[in-house]
């Protein structure tokens, strides 16, 4: 691959189709999506039930293997990757946050958070240190040895987010992360996600709640397996890279500005 000045988009979909059923029952959950997602975007995907939002998220998270069309992750096509390689990518680059938290009920909080680190082959001590640190960041330090059933919904989701982040993934996929939470807990969760966005993570979130789109930098609505609308909101940190590379003057200016704000 030739080195271009701008890095390849994190995710690039070309004419993506996902078919369910065969013969008469055949239908497309995703029916031709072209999408480019740059590093650092916070995308909210909206749409009615059954429009293919979750399916799209599963495809993006490499959980769904039988797709038609092209999917480039960090500029590389995933079609040619082996299952093992995909598992490695999931382990290193992708963090999942689910609507129903999906904590393993027989493991305590710290073991749940340390779970992704297992598959990176990290030792027990290192895993627990890292999981403990991230739990502290999420103000859950005192809950390390609680079982998931002893936590509130908001706490469980924070644990789930901590688990999604413990690997330091570049992409976070959240499937209705606030779907099971009240508005107060939702707000806290969204603040956390927003924080992560500020730190430069790419976040793709599926949601039903239009209020939450205010946190996003880009809102995509889907209908019948297609992208219906695609709106960018300000500020748009991700758009910098879609344009031409920055000139030296601009870079210096930006750097100075950053310094000042610090």
């Amino acid at each position: 691959m030739a080195k271009s000045a701008s890095p390849p988009p994190v995710i690039e979909l070309r004419d993506l189709h996902k078919r369910f059923g065969i013969g008469d029952a055949e239908h497309f959950a995703i029916d031709g999506i072209d999408l480019t997602i740059q590093k650092g975007e916070f995308i909210a995907i909206m749409g009615p039930s059954g429009c293919g939002k979750t399916t799209l998220l599963n495809v993006l998270g490499l959980l769904d293997n039988s797709i038609e069309g092209e999917y480039l992750l960090n500029g590389k096509p995933i079609a040619s990757l082996s299952q093992r390689r995909k598992a490695k990518i999931r382990s290193e680059e992708i963090g999942f946050v689910f609507q129903s938290f999906n904590l393993i009920s027989r493991l305590n909080v710290i073991d749940n958070v340390a779970l992704p680190l297992i598959y990176k082959g990290m030792s027990k001590l290192k895993r627990e240190k890292k999981a403990s640190k991230i739990l502290h960041d999420f103000h859950l330090g005192e809950r390390e040895f609680y079982m998931p059933s002893q936590l509130s919904g908001g706490q469980m989701q924070r644990v789930a987010i901590a688990r999604a982040l413990v690997n330091e993934p570049s992409i976070i996929l959240a499937d209705e992360p606030t779907g099971n939470l009240d508005s107060h807990a939702s707000h806290i969760i969204m603040e956390e996600l927003s924080d992560l966005h500020q730190k430069g993570n790419t976040i793709i979130m599926v949601t039903h709640n239009p209020n939450l789109t205010t946190y996003a930098s880009r809102v995509i609505t889907m209908l019948d397996g297609k992208v219906d609308t695609d709106t960018f909101r300000l500020p748009l940190p991700a758009r910098e890279s879609t344009k031409k590379p920055l000139g030296n003057t601009t870079k210096k200016k930006l750097a100075r500005k950053k310094k000042d704000t610090k």
Binding site: L63, A87, S91, E92, N102, I104, I118, Y119
Partner: peptide
């Protein structure tokens, strides 16, 4: 089954 799904989503390979 659900745990298997979670583990796979978190990066477990079939071999794991």
């Amino acid at each position: 089954t659900r745990e298997i799904g979670i583990r796979k989503a978190l990066g477990a390979s079939n071999r794991d």
